[in-house]
Design a binder for these strands. Structure first.
Lengths: 342, 342
DNA sequence: TTGAAAGCGTTACCAC
DNA sequence: GTGGTAACGCTTTCAA
């Protein structure tokens, strides 16, 4: 049923019906109530495509889905959905190929030009992210989940990645560890650089030399953790502690330790960053994993909220949220072994 | 720039331009080439909302996102995206709350009535899934990822879940195991029932009595695996093998075994189902995990393809794909210990 | 092979 | 407070 028919059936003009259903103030309360009741009874629903054409709004926000997202993605989206549910905004997935190809930018260009979305969220920026410059130029509202160093003013929300590794490293140093490995994300991303920085800062504060052989960059997979930890732990002067960028790499480190007959929590210590997942929890690992923690689901919720504010007129350049992280001490981080291994 | 302006600029009518860009046969090759070149040069792109209103097509396919999806979701979507990329179909996320609430059905109703999507894919059906009946009634094309027992004819693609557990159990029986635990998904889902069935079938073929205390249903999390395996392995007559429904539960089982000082691959055997993820791989676990394997990414790709065919006129009732699974033997499944534990 | 004009189902401006 | 009507930007008959 279309507006015209529906309006005719209840003896009102399309204009009035449209206004009543869209909550315009000038329609009388009595009329509005009646229209709403009749719409429910007769099952009238506006055609979104017509609404979109008439209003110029797309009614959707696009989420760029980089390969890097992987297992965090679902939690983030669920967070956004919590905030968006019931509203008139859909979530449109924008699958991307490999990062930073020309193709990737084309995707955004087409997206903007075809007016498919009202706003966009992008993840895992690199320090000088071309997507940011492009979206700014295209004048399509966007928010960055993560940070970039671009000079283009833009909205962003990020966790304090520098603190993630600084606090974890500090904690391990407090426990007497001196050879501490860092298994970070791919080093082109800003977040990975921030984490490198936090790690270095903690070491410097104690006048401990930075040793590049203790640091690794790679994707967040158990394999990355296993490979690097295995190699590192087989060395002559083996590390006594690890800072892991993700739960998956932490799994790999645990595994490497076990396969070498080393006990996590005594022979070696581990602290990982945890985005909080329902299917893999730090506190039930054996031993319970010490983590820096920040809910990626909550980030999704907040980003959706900020996006709503932006569409409501809030200035993007006013939006910059840096979320602190919790440091949760459990059993995987313990005092360094008294005797440095020979 | 709009069609009218663009057409005027290159000295053609909107009609011809529209036809040229949409690949209609009646426009001359020369004209088409010219129009395409000019469109690229001047940056003309049709407004999708106008196209959608005029054609009645939504240009998007909806993917219902149940909480059950979680970490598999991203891989599935990426598979769909591979097939859909470049095309004119977007992926619209349909976040759902808890399963089987009235609310859930409302979501689909609104979706259909507002003409937001051309087709829908739903996951993890229950045996008599109300969503299927509803979508059929609403006449919105859909495909089910998984199976239902409803009498409503519909398109579906599923892996052979009965074979998943039957083959895994069979394999363990061949190795001499007799007390084999099954850690399955939540028992309201069809796939979990099919897996129950496969497990029972394998046991029956060897005249081994079904013991309900060896079977558990729960969400796919490491905690589920850990909890149940810990309890089971602490019993007097402890099980010697486990069939796990997911990689996450397998992690939990490994962990439980270790915490009790039992070695996977000798004291106990484990076979799990693996959807194939880039961030957690069976062959690099310690010991390498034997799995039944089927790529959920490939399923996403195929489902997108089938959807395309349906929108092209293929009858949904003709679409029914049952995918076999591979059984990959690695080191976690080995002959049962000679001496049944006392 | 090309073009004119009538939709597609809303919203929003301007009268009443 | 309510109604008529011109957009919104495209597709698609129908005519030429």
């Amino acid at each position: 049923m279309k507006l015209k028919d529906f309006a005719a059936q209840i003896g009102l003009s399309p204009t009035t019906v449209s206004r009543a259903l869209s909550g315009y103030p000038e329609v009388s309360d009595k009329t509005r109530k009646r229209v709403e009741a009749e719409a429910a009874r007769l099952g009238y629903h506006p055609d979104v495509n017509a609404v979109r054409l008439a209003t110029g709004r797309a009614g959707a926000i696009g989420v760029a889905m980089t390969r890097a997202g992987d297992y965090q993605f679902s939690e983030f989206i669920n967070g956004m959905a919590e905030r968006l549910s019931g509203g008139e905004l859909d979530i449109l997935l924008i699958p991307m190929g490999e990062h930073e190809t020309v193709d990737e930018l084309q995707v955004f260009r087409r997206l903007a030009q075809s007016r498919r979305v009202d706003a966009v969220v992008i993840h895992s920026p690199v320090p000088d992210d071309p997507r940011i410059a492009l979206l700014d130029r295209l004048k399509i509202p966007f928010i960055v989940h993560g940070r970039s160093l671009t000079t283009v003013p833009h909205a962003w929300l990020d966790i304090d990645n520098e603190a993630v590794t600084r606090r974890a490293t500090d904690h391990l140093l407090d426990l007497g560890h001196r050879r501490i490995c860092l298994i970070n994300g791919p080093d082109n991303y800003t977040f990975a650089r921030d984490r490198d920085h936090g790690y270095r800062t903690a070491l410097q504060a104690r006048r401990i030399a930075y040793d590049e052989t203790l640091v690794h960059h790679g994707t967040f997979s158990d394999e990355t953790g296993f490979r690097f930890a295995s190699t590192a732990l087989s060395k002559q002067a083996r590390p006594t502690a690890f800072v892991a960028g993700s739960m998956m790499t932490a799994l790999g480190i645990y595994r490497a330790a076990r396969s070498l007959g080393l006990a996590v929590g005594s022979d070696i210590s581990v602290v990982a960053h945890d985005d909080v997942f329902p299917y893999l929890t730090a506190e039930t690992m054996t031993p319970a994993l010490s983590t820096t923690r920040s809910s990626i689901r909550a980030a999704g919720r907040e980003i959706a909220d900020l996006l709503l504010q932006m569409l409501d007129g809030r200035k993007p350049s006013d939006i910059a949220e840096l979320w602190p992280v919790d440091l949760i001490l459990r059993d995987s981080s313990r005092p360094a072994p008294k005797e440095p291994t020979p």
